[in-house]
Design a protein around this nucleic acid. Structure first.
Length: 923
RNA sequence: GCUCGGGUGGUGGAACUGGUAGACACGCAGGUCUCAGAAGCCUGUGCUUAACCGCAUGGGGGUUCGAGUCCCCCCCCGAGCACCA
């Protein structure tokens, strides 16, 4: 039943229909259906304490329009939402207040849910998920165990980014410009025991399979760059034997060690004039001669003390390095090549050693110039004397046996020749590193792993499938083995703790919960009792220590799209039937900030699940779209000089505005002249004008609640879509909202009179004008096409055009109005549902099939022909379709606006595009 | 520095495979209704002009009968990467 309000009372209408849809389960997605399926997914939010800001509903509105449209088109639509609720802010709040992060998280979820419900999205709330719910993270842990069993998880002590402020380690990706991405706190290097996932094992497939997904090119490119595949060769250099040289310090290999390097340009091997090792390279000590020992040690020490950030920022200025005194032998020509160490070579990539070719590599050139090393030319470009370093195309020179060959060809030949001699091989290297998967925090999924002794591990191994290579770690001289919990023992839940504060040494708060940590563990059942108690009877009880790290926030979001298929299943993360029917999302919308991290991690997990045979597709997100960021309102700032007097703002001021003395101005106090803004009070003074990202600290956050209260959610939804292209970054501008609000008012008035009755101009028996009929069919066609193409802004303007025509029509068929309401329904579902019902539409507009258009109604007999003279528009005229050129020319000559431009001039040429344009070219 | 993506009225933005630049809105101005206002409605609105003309899609050049759209050079803004050998 519709409301009986006389005016467009959105405060009454919107909650009314939201309740109606909820009570009728209007958006329930059925797992058994004969309809084609359509799965449209939003990136689920982290429920922060700040609540929703205006950027959230932008993407959500887009997917909601699509979901409602697809339902009308006859699809069984899955449109779910949930909460990515583990994460740092909740834990930091817990540290501050001493309350359990779960309670704060639940409060935040409740608030987010209230806000999202007020926006009227057609989510299937029966499928809501929460990554912190043990019923959910049981399966996150289960997937981890699958990775573990396949040897894709291991433990390593490695230098990691430690953030003293957040008291946790961060992944490389979470560190931006030497600061934590969350909070912007400084970070430093520390060696800590970490869980690492072997994502590099999937590098090739993660790269190659990008061809199978419909994603924005920029995102594909970013992933490509992140994976960073490069083809080259590993080349073995003999080290020069010399008096006093102590080979291999370990004594294991009595032979002289060899130096293995990676290069993408084996063709430039003849141009190699020195070698560079990373200062951390294991051969450095053995290579260094007595006379260079002091300098080398000093350099190594200096490098070690530097964080990567310092290393990078200094590197930008100037190359540094020292000679070791050692020499290598170039395998192609037997030349002695001096070996240096320098921090511009990174231990983490390739072999940590390079051959330097200063003639054809910019970094090597810089270094060689710095230390006066020879810079020979071995590649000649077209002119043959290109300025060095030359990295372009060309042929080999000064390379006996290969001179004259094009370099890509020489690259293959030289690699093959080295391989034949056993001193080289073609290889592929990736920039992608293994994924640091642990955090020293409380608020995350616990690892379902117990550390046990070697003998106990061997016992357990006889009863269980365990990885081919055990995951081990040496602690205080004792080798510990990682024994996973049996799957039946999941979930492993978090224990209660006294304090959420991590220990200063980098261990998680879980390390303090002794009765949880130190246990007797039954490896058959997964049962445990505190180690302080006596060991229970039975053979399967062994002494163990639980893993204290927890998983990073990415874990829960790596597979949530699969849980939505079957969220209540207790036997599997989703049933095989659900996985088969729904598959993966047909459409996925979220911010571009996840272009590499979430989207790469989720692809990795999905591929592992695919290899396990539990998901049928090899890629999780077939079609992806990024909505643009909505910036805060344009802000005007007057810059003041040291005395506090206003002065003109320079572009430099705009970059460092926070370091200047300033005064905020309102839009009324400024005016635009040319492309710059000026202060009205003194128009000589240029004012800074820019939009900033919405942030709490800037105070420019717009909450959807405010707009819903003042204009209603239908207006907000419509305005968010009308603001501009979905993918564009755009500033929020509250003034424009009146325009779409007026449009909705207009639609209301065309349907309902001031007395609350159906507008008498609407009747079942009315006849629409030919123009209105044509426009209706055009509008149906355009709106449908534009929804599919996500061009919501122009779809809305098409509907505005129709509404304007509707307003001018003296009478209109009821069917016409109903069809129009259906077009508008995905955008403004509450208003259209109300009007639909009041006009007698049944059942709910949500379940009415999308209107069709009649192609015959779109054809015309008359078209507007544009007359041009020398390419300039001089007039136009309605002409019959298919008019002959001669007739068109005659009409043009007769046209009073065209004729003067032809007078007394010879016609050189006539270009006629029937139905479009007639261009007369004259002298 | 490298790699992408963009620059269109006072504002947000339209413009199919090269074919009327500025759709649709905001704002502004005038009118109408009203005791008055609000809301509506009507008209106008790129710049210039009384009008015609002329000029106009960041700047410069080119291709074309015709360029916002294609090509070359430059400027500015945004995003990503940043010693990955």
């Amino acid at each position: 039943m519709a409301t009986n309000c006389k005016d467009y009372d959105f405060r009454q209408i919107e909650p009314h229909w939201q309740t109606f849809w909820q009570e009728n389960l209007s958006f329930r997605a059925d797992n058994v259906s004969t309809k084609p399926k359509y799965y449209v997914l939003d990136m689920f939010p982290y429920p922060s304490g700040a609540g929703l800001h205006i950027g959230h509903p932008e993407g959500y509105t887009a997917t909601d329009i699509l979901a409602r449209y697809k339902r009308a088109k006859g699809f069984n639509v899955l449109h779910p939402i949930g909460w990515d609720a583990f994460g740092l802010p909740a834990e930091q709040h817990a540290v501050k207040t001493g309350t359990h992060p779960a309670s704060n998280t639940q409060n935040n979820i409740a608030n987010f849910k209230r806000q999202i419900k007020a926006l009227g999205f057609s989510y299937d709330w029966e499928r809501e998920i929460d990554t912190t719910d043990p019923k959910y993270f049981r399966w996150t842990q289960w997937i981890f165990l699958q990775l573990f069993k396949r040897g894709l998880a291991y433990v390593d002590e490695r230098p990691v980014w430690w953030c003293p402020e957040l008291r946790t380690v961060l992944a490389n990706e979470e560190v931006v410009d030497g600061k934590s991405e969350v909070g912007g706190f400084p970070v430093e290097r520390r060696n800590l025991r970490q869980w690492v996932l072997r994502i590099t094992a999937y590098a090739e497939r993660l790269l190659a399979d990008l061809k199978d997904v419909d994603w924005p090119d920029s995102t594909k490119r970013m992933q490509e760059a992140w994976i960073g595949r490069s083809e080259g060769a590993e080349i073995v250099f003999e080290l020069e034997r010399r008096p006093g040289f102590t080979p291999d310090t370990s004594g294991v290999n009595p032979d002289l060690p060899k130096l293995k390097i990676f290069t993408t340009r084996p063709d430039t091997l003849f141009g190699c004039t020195y070698m560079v090792l990373a200062p951390e390279h294991p051969l450095v000590d053995a290579l260094t001669t007595a006379e260079h020992r002091a300098a080398v040690d000093a350099y190594k020490k200096k490098t070690a003390a530097k964080s990567d950030v310092d290393r990078m920022s200094e590197a930008a200025k100037e190359k540094t390095g020292v000679f070791t005194g050692g020499f290598a032998i170039n395998p192609v020509n037997g030349q002695r090549v001096p070996i240096w160490i320098a921090d511009y070579v990174l231990m983490g990539y390739g072999t940590g050693a390079i051959m330097a070719v200063p003639g054809h590599d910019e970094r090597d050139f810089e270094f060689a110039t710095q230390f006066s090393l020879p810079i020979p030319r071995v590649i000649a470009g077209p002119s043959g004397d290109e300025k060095l370093p030359y990295t372009g195309d060309g042929k080999l020179i000064n390379s006996p046996g290969y001179d004259g060959m094009a370099w890509p060809e020489a690259k293959k030949k030289i690699t093959a020749d080295l391989a034949a001699r056993g001193v080289g091989a073609a290889t592929v290297n990736y920039k992608l590193r293994d994924w640091l998967f642990s955090r020293q925090r409380y608020w995350g999924e616990p690892f379902p792993v117990v550390w046990v002794g070697e003998a106990d591990y061997a016992k357990a191994k006889q009863t269980r499938a365990l990885p081919a290579e055990p995951v081990t770690f040496v602690e205080e001289g004792k080798k510990l083995f990682a024994l996973p919990l049996p799957e039946s023992a999941l979930p492993l839940v978090l224990p209660e703790v006294q304090s959420y504060l991590p220990s200063g040494t980098g261990e998680s708060p879980l390390a303090n919960v002794t009765e949880w940590l130190e246990i007797w563990f039954n490896y058959e059942t997964g049962a445990s009792v505190p180690a302080a108690q006596p060991c229970p009877a039975g053979g399967a009880w062994i002494r163990g220590r639980r893993e204290t790290n927890t998983m990073p926030q990415w874990a829960g979001s790596c597979w949530y799209y699969l849980r939505f298929l079957d969220p209540k299943n207790t036997d599997a993360f989703a049933s095989a039937e659900a996985l088969k029917y729904w598959g993966v999302p047909d459409f996925y919308v979220g911010g571009a900030e996840h272009a590499v991290l979430h989207l790469l991690y989720a692809r990795f997990w999905h591929k592992v699940l695919f290899d396990l045979g539990v998901v049928p597709q090899h890629e999780p997100f077939t079609k992806l779209f990024h909505q643009g960021i909505i910036l805060g309102e344009l802000e005007f700032t007057l810059v003041l000089d040291d005395n506090g007097s206003p002065r003109s703002a320079t572009p430099e001021d705009s970059r460092v505005l926070e370091n200047r003395r300033t005064r905020s101005l309102t839009a009324e106090e400024v005016e635009k002249i040319g492309s710059d803004w000026f202060w009205k009070e003194n128009p000589k003074i240029r004012v800074d004008a820019q939009s900033f990202k919405m942030s709490k600290s800037r105070g420019n956050v717009v909450s959807p609640d405010t707009i819903i209260e003042s204009h209603g959610t239908d207006t907000l939804r419509l305005y968010l879509m009308f603001l501009g292209p979905l993918e564009a970054m755009k500033p929020w501008n509250p003034r424009g909202i009146e325009g779409v609000h007026r449009f909705l008012h207009k639609v209301w008035r065309e349907c309902i009179t001031a007395e609350g009755e159906v507008n008498p101009k609407i009747s079942a028996s009315a006849t629409d004008s030919a123009e209105l009929t044509k426009l209706l069919h055009e509008t149906i066609k355009k709106v449908g096409e534009k929804i599919e193409a996500l061009q919501f802004n122009t779809a809305i303007s098409d509907m505005m055009v129709f509404a304007n025509a509707l307003q001018k029509a003296p009478s209109v068929r009821r069917e016409t109005v109903l069809a129009f309401l259906q077009l508008l329904a995905p955008f403004a579902p509450h208003l259209t549902e109300e009007l639909w019902q009041r006009l007698g539409g049944r059942p709910s507009i949500q379940h009415a099939p999308w209107p069709g258009y009649d192609a015959a109604q779109l054809t015309t007999t008359q078209v507007k022909l544009v007359f041009q003279v020398n390419g300039k528009h001089r007039g136009d005229q309605l002409v019959p379709v298919g008019l002959a050129e001669a007739d068109a020319l005659a009409l043009a000559r007769a046209n009073p606006r065209v004729a003067p431009h032809l007078e007394g001039k010879g016609v050189k040429r006539v270009v006629y595009v029937p139905g479009k344009i007639l261009n007369i070219v004259v002298e």
